[in-house]
C-alpha cells in the first residue's frame, strides 16, 4: 500500500511530534532528527514508504538500557495479532516500553490485551490525530515540569500538606500522556499570569 502525498505530510508531522515528545521525556534524540525538513523526510523513506518503516527505538539519556520503541502499525484497526508480534519483538530485544501510533482506535480485544500485559510491557497508545500538533507548544498550555521525589518532599513539607491535598491532574489528561506521567508524581506548572506576571502551581497526578 503506497501512501498518498497528504499522508506522508501527516506522517512527517507525527514523527516530529513523537521525537519532540521523547526528547521532552529525557530520551536521547538528536536535534538533527527533529529539524529534518519535509523533503529530507521523503528522501529518507523513499517514494513508496510504509508506516512500518518509521518504527524506531530510542534510549534514555542517562541510562542506556532504558529503551523505548515507537511502532507505526499499517492496519487501520490494530488487533491482537499485531500486538503479539510487537510484544514478541520487544521481548527478544529486552525493551519494556513502547508507544503505539495508530490510525484509528484499537479493537476492544487489543485494548484488554494492553491492560493485561501492562505488568511487563508498558504500552502507550496514541492516535495519529492527537500527534499532528504538539499540544505542549500550544498557546494555552503552560510549561509543565516533573518534580523529583526530593523536590516533591520539600514541597509537601513547605505547605504541610499530604499529596492528596494538592490540586490534581489526571493520568489521562493530554498533557500527562504527552509526558508519560505516572500516578503519584507531582508536576510543577509555570504559567504566565495577568496579575503577577508569572505564577507557579503544582498538580498531583491521579
Amino acid at each position: 500500500m503506497v501512501l498518498t502525498e497528504d499522508e506522508t505530510n501527516r506522517l512527517y508531522r507525527i514523527t516530529r511530534t513523537v521525537l519532540k515528545m521523547l526528547r521532552d521525556r529525557g530520551y536521547l534524540v538528536h536535534n538533527k532528527e527533529i529539524e529534518m525538513s519535509k523533503h529530507e523526510f521523503k528522501n529518507k523513506f523513499g517514494e513508496n514508504m510504509k508506516r512500518e518503516d518509521l518504527t524506531f527505538m530510542k534510549s534514555m539519556r542517562e541510562n542506556d538500557s532504558d529503551r523505548i520503541y515507537v511502532f507505526f502499525p499499517d492496519e487501520a484497526k490494530v488487533g491482537v495479532k499485531t500486538m503479539k508480534t510487537y510484544t514478541n519483538r520487544m521481548k527478544s530485544e529486552n525493551v519494556f516500553k513502547a508507544i503505539l501510533v495508530c490510525q484509528q482506535n484499537l479493537t476492544p480485544f487489543a485494548k484488554t490485551c494492553v491492560s493485561e500485559i501492562s505488568s511487563t510491557f508498558h504500552l502507550e497508545v496514541f492516535q495519529e490525530s492527537e500527534l499532528l500538533v504538539n499540544i505542549v507548544e500550544h498557546v494555552l498550555v503552560p510549561e509543565h515540569q516533573i518534580l523529583t521525589d526530593e523536590e516533591k518532599k520539600t514541597l509537601l513539607e513547605r505547605y504541610t500538606v499530604k499529596e492528596t491535598q494538592l490540586p490534581r491532574i489526571q493520568v489521562t489528561d493530554p498533557v500527562s500522556r504527552y509526558y508519560g506521567l505516572k500516578r503519584g508524581q507531582v508536576v510543577k506548572i509555570i504559567r504566565p499570569s495577568e496579575t503577577a506576571g508569572r505564577y507557579v502551581t503544582y498538580r498531583f497526578v491521579v
Partner: peptide, 21 residues
C-alpha cells in the same frame, strides 16, 4: 496553525489540550 487555534467549548478544550488550558 494548530498551536494558536482555540475553541470556546470548555469540554472540548479539556479533552484536546488538558486541564491547564
Amino acid at each position: 496553525d494548530g498551536r494558536r487555534t482555540v475553541s470556546n467549548h470548555i469540554d472540548e478544550v479539556e479533552k484536546v489540550l488538558g486541564i491547564e488550558a
